[in-house]
Structure formats: structure tokens, C-alpha cells
């Protein structure tokens, strides 16, 4: 049955999806086309929507593939399938972590791991800026306006300590006012 096949495929993909990002998109594409769930052209649209939406791009594309195969129930099955491995593995790690937390070797590992998380976030910020064409070496009014929106957003989060929701909402209105 097709629902079981959807579930099985996305569970397997979930287990190998480190980072949840663009790296597994080709795997999802290959599987979906192999099973004849969608066409290559449809998948391009799916990537477009997944990238626009919040949430992990891999989960988003799984949801849309599932939806085009068998509607809402297909979407639910695919979302649960790709998330199940995370759930199982995180619970194992969490239980294990409570046991090993007090050893000094664990503390040494975290001493090196915490800075790497910081590097990963800075890297994610740079990547996000590059893929959305926000970094430009040439001056233009558009890049200046983006820089101003960025600075004001950061200022309201960091110094004014506004709630992130408020900042995003205001930013949306600013965008509609100045870019349309």
C-alpha cells in the first residue's frame, strides 16, 4: 500500500538526514521519482515552496510529496515518517546524556562542542545571507535598504529587547511599504 511505502521511505531518509538541510533534497527527489510519486518538474515547484516556508526544507518537501501522492493523509504520514527518527534518536541521546553528564570527559567534550555550535550559527547566518543574495560587494539602494532593515531588526531585538514576533511583523509591513 502506498501510505506504508511513503512512511517507510521517509523514515529511512530521516535516519540519514544530518542537519535537515539541502543535503538530503537530492535523496528525496531520487526516491520520489523512482517510486513515480511526482515528476522532476513538480519537484522543482516543491523545492520553491519548501524554501519559502518556515521549518526544515526536508520536512517541508516530504509533506508536499506526501500531499501530491495521497492528499492530507499522505502529508501527515510523510511528516511523521521523516520526524520519527529524530524523535527516537533524541530520546536515546537524552536518556544517555543524563547518565554520562557528570563525568569529566563529558564536560571536556562540551567545552569543545559549545564553541562549534556558535561557529555553526555564524556559518548559518552567512549561508542564509548568501543564498538570499543579501551580501553584495557593489553599492545599490536595494542593498543599502536591506542593510538598514537588518540593522534596525538587530537593534530592536538586542537593545530594545522587543519580542521577535513583533519585529518580524513590523518587518513584513516595512517590506510591503518600501519594496512594492
Amino acid at each position: 500500500m502506498i501510505l506504508i511505502q511513503l512512511f517507510k521511505t521517509f523514515v529511512i531518509i530521516g535516519f540519514v538526514s544530518f542537519g535537515g538541510g539541502y543535503a538530503i533534497i537530492p535523496i528525496i527527489e531520487a526516491e520520489a521519482i523512482k517510486h513515480e510519486w511526482i515528476t522532476a518538474q513538480q519537484f522543482i515547484d516543491i523545492i520553491g515552496i519548501s524554501g519559502m516556508s518556515p521549518g526544515p526544507i526536508a520536512t517541508n518537501s516530504a509533506i508536499l510529496v506526501g500531499h501530491s501522492v495521497s492528499g492530507i493523509i499522505g502529508a501527515v504520514i510523510s511528516a511523521l515518517g521523516i520526524s520519527l527518527p529524530s524523535f527516537i534518536l533524541v530520546l536515546i541521546i537524552a536518556a544517555f546524556f543524563q547518565k554520562i553528564n557528570h563525568y569529566s570527559i563529558t564536560k571536556s567534550i562540551f567545552y569543545g562542542l559549545r564553541p562549534i555550535v556558535t561557529s555553526l550559527i555564524i556559518y548559518a547566518a552567512l549561508k542564509f545571507a548568501i543564498t538570499n543574495n543579501m551580501i553584495s560587494l557593489y553599492f545599490s539602494w536595494h542593498s543599502l535598504s536591506l542593510f538598514i532593515v537588518f540593522s534596525l531588526s538587530l537593534l530592536s531585538l538586542w537593545k530594545l529587547r522587543w519580542h521577535p514576533f513583533l519585529v518580524i511583523l513590523l518587518s513584513g509591513f516595512v517590506g510591503i511599504t518600501i519594496y512594492s
Partner: peptide, 26 residues
């Protein structure tokens, strides 16, 4: 498209602010 152009820039600010928060403890 216009709203998203601005919101994406704000998301970048959120990520940078997250780096500051986590960096402070790391």
C-alpha cells in the same frame, strides 16, 4: 515578494542575535 524580502532580512538578524546569545555561554 516585498514582505518576504524584508522578513528574510529580519530572520538574518534573528540568527545573528542567536549567535550572540549562544556565543556568550560558549
Amino acid at each position: 515578494e516585498a514582505a518576504f524580502t524584508s522578513v528574510r532580512t529580519t530572520i538574518l538578524a534573528l540568527i545573528v542575535y542567536a549567535a550572540k546569545k549562544i556565543g556568550k555561554t560558549a
